[in-house]
Lab assay of single mutants.
Amino acid sequence: DVEPGKFYKGVVTRIEKYGASINLNEQVRGLLRPRDMISLRLENLNVGDEIIVQAIDVRPEKREIDFKYIP
């Protein structure tokens, strides 16, 4: 289970102007929005990149997770 405040290694699977889709595994994925990137710009991400993200909002009833990137 993903817990708010914990850090996870994820893989960038899609990049859109509203954010990047991050997969932690086949069943768990979430969104990294541009506003939640401290020192990383969306255009510097590539599909397949592995990054460390922090879960900031977990809504299991909607199967949604928001991530934050902290270098």
Rank of each mutant, 00 (worst) to 15 (best):
20 A>V: 14
69 Y>N: 04
62 K>E: 10
31 L>Q: 05
1 D>N: 14
46 N>A: 14
11 V>S: 03
36 D>K: 03
49 D>G: 02
48 G>K: 00
53 V>A: 01
29 R>G: 13
15 I>C: 06
69 Y>V: 04
63 R>T: 08
16 E>Q: 12
64 E>P: 04
38 I>P: 06
48 G>H: 02
29 R>F: 12
40 L>Y: 04
48 G>D: 04
57 D>N: 15
58 V>L: 06
57 D>F: 14
24 L>I: 14
67 F>L: 09
3 E>P: 15
25 N>K: 05
16 E>D: 15
1 D>R: 13
22 I>E: 01
65 I>V: 10
66 D>H: 12
69 Y>F: 11
46 N>K: 15
14 R>G: 09
19 G>R: 05
2 V>A: 03
1 D>Y: 14
52 I>F: 09
2 V>M: 06
13 T>S: 10
7 F>L: 06
47 V>F: 02
60 P>N: 10
37 M>R: 01
62 K>A: 12
59 R>G: 06
18 Y>L: 08
28 V>R: 04
68 K>Y: 07
62 K>H: 10
28 V>E: 04
64 E>T: 10
53 V>K: 00
9 K>S: 06
47 V>G: 00
20 A>Q: 01
64 E>F: 11
19 G>M: 05
14 R>N: 08
51 I>G: 01
50 E>T: 14
41 R>E: 08
52 I>P: 00
66 D>K: 12
7 F>E: 02
6 K>I: 07
61 E>F: 07
29 R>L: 09
43 E>H: 10
45 L>I: 09
69 Y>H: 04
15 I>H: 01
12 V>Y: 12
31 L>N: 06
31 L>T: 09
45 L>H: 01
40 L>C: 12
68 K>G: 14
13 T>F: 06
14 R>H: 11
39 S>F: 14
12 V>S: 00
36 D>N: 15
46 N>M: 13
70 I>P: 05
17 K>L: 11
14 R>W: 09
32 L>H: 02
55 A>M: 09
52 I>N: 04
39 S>M: 12
48 G>I: 01
61 E>D: 14
52 I>M: 10
68 K>T: 06
30 G>M: 06
18 Y>P: 02
57 D>P: 03
53 V>D: 00
46 N>F: 10
24 L>M: 04
21 S>E: 15
45 L>S: 00
17 K>I: 13
25 N>Q: 05
27 Q>N: 14
70 I>M: 11
19 G>E: 03
14 R>T: 07
5 G>T: 03
9 K>I: 11
1 D>H: 14
47 V>P: 04
67 F>V: 04
9 K>L: 12
21 S>P: 01
11 V>C: 08
70 I>D: 13
12 V>E: 00
